[in-house]
Amino acid sequence: MSLQVAEGERTDESAERLLGNAHVVVGIPAYNEENAVGSTVLGVQRWADAVVVVDDGSTDRTSAIAEQADVTVLRHERNRGKGAAVRTLFAHARRTDCDALVLLDADGQHDPADIPTLAAPVVEGEADMVIGSRYLADDAGDETPAYRRLGQVVLDYCTSRVTGSDLTDTQSGFRAFSPESLERLSLTTDGMGVESEMIDSATSEGLTITERAIDARYDDLEGQTYNPVKHGLAVMLFLARLLKRRRPVSEER
């Protein structure tokens, strides 16, 4: 049975059908996102029981704007990287009695209405990690610029080769996690390789990963959005280190 909400049916009632009385926490890593963090927070509040923003050492008004929305704001004194922000969100979620943690980016590219779709498989015990894929459904409505899509294909291929996974969108920052995965995932990188490291760790731990189709937009984004070239290079360097770290194990076999 599909757990996805049909287009046009994303309402509070449909979310209630999907999630029941589950306690869903939404975490938002943010760095210099004063232009988008406010609208992002307001958008997710409709679908979350609690919202947590990690301001990763921003030099703008990211924290002040998020605090005006009456959500929990955790601040890094200096910019440490997305991986470090995710680890802070994981640590916070472990201290709460949540049934699912949903992560999404602060730049406005993700549709908050997709939160129930991602959280439902976790709440119902069908998956430990759910990745919101921009490419799982028919790509007729895919707004990803061609140069970004090409880079994503390369990163998906390399991540799948290193981790042994078979996924359509390994770099999506829109994900849901079970309480068990919050305890068992081992995240070490501070940087943009965190999405790939999540997959590698989940695979190594025998956790269940699935994907759900999501919407994403790139036109008229108010947020900063990370430079795609720098992002790609950072992920590739991390995957190379990850492969090197794994190599002695394969050689022993």
Results as ranks from 00 to 15, higher is better:
residue 181 S to W: 06
residue 59 T to N: 03
residue 157 Y to F: 15
residue 24 V to L: 09
residue 209 I to L: 15
residue 135 Y to N: 06
residue 98 C to E: 08
residue 34 E to L: 01
residue 112 P to L: 02
residue 188 T to H: 07
residue 17 R to M: 14
residue 249 V to H: 12
residue 21 N to I: 11
residue 146 A to T: 09
residue 47 W to H: 06
residue 87 R to C: 10
residue 116 P to V: 10
residue 126 E to V: 06
residue 92 H to L: 07
residue 79 N to Q: 14
residue 170 T to D: 00
residue 199 I to P: 01
residue 188 T to V: 11
residue 62 T to A: 02
residue 93 A to P: 05
residue 244 K to P: 08
residue 145 P to Q: 02
residue 80 R to Q: 14
residue 135 Y to V: 14
residue 182 L to F: 02
residue 140 A to M: 06
residue 108 G to R: 07
residue 182 L to M: 07
residue 159 T to F: 07
residue 153 V to Y: 13
residue 122 V to R: 02
residue 52 V to D: 01
residue 247 R to F: 14
residue 29 P to L: 10
residue 35 N to E: 11
residue 250 S to M: 13
residue 12 D to Y: 10
residue 169 D to V: 06
residue 213 A to L: 03
residue 43 G to I: 03
residue 195 E to W: 00
residue 106 A to L: 08
residue 156 D to R: 06
residue 18 L to A: 12
residue 242 L to H: 10
residue 103 L to W: 08
residue 138 D to K: 10
residue 32 N to K: 07
residue 34 E to R: 11
residue 175 R to K: 11
residue 118 L to N: 00
residue 207 L to H: 08
residue 191 G to Q: 08
residue 223 G to E: 02
residue 200 D to A: 15
residue 94 R to I: 01
residue 14 S to T: 13
residue 157 Y to V: 14
residue 208 T to P: 07
residue 230 K to Q: 15
residue 225 T to D: 00
residue 166 D to H: 15
residue 241 R to C: 12
residue 214 I to K: 04
residue 9 E to W: 12
residue 146 A to V: 04
residue 103 L to Y: 06
residue 176 A to V: 02
residue 247 R to A: 15
residue 63 S to M: 03
residue 43 G to V: 07
residue 112 P to R: 01
residue 200 D to H: 07
residue 164 G to P: 09
residue 126 E to K: 05
residue 84 A to E: 09
residue 28 I to D: 01
residue 220 D to S: 13
residue 211 E to R: 03
residue 231 H to P: 00
residue 12 D to I: 14
residue 230 K to L: 14
residue 232 G to R: 01
residue 153 V to M: 13
residue 55 D to G: 07
residue 119 A to P: 09
residue 107 D to S: 11
residue 98 C to L: 11
residue 178 S to K: 03
residue 14 S to D: 08
residue 25 V to S: 03
residue 172 S to C: 11
residue 91 A to Q: 05
residue 165 S to E: 09
residue 33 E to S: 12
residue 34 E to I: 00
residue 139 D to R: 13
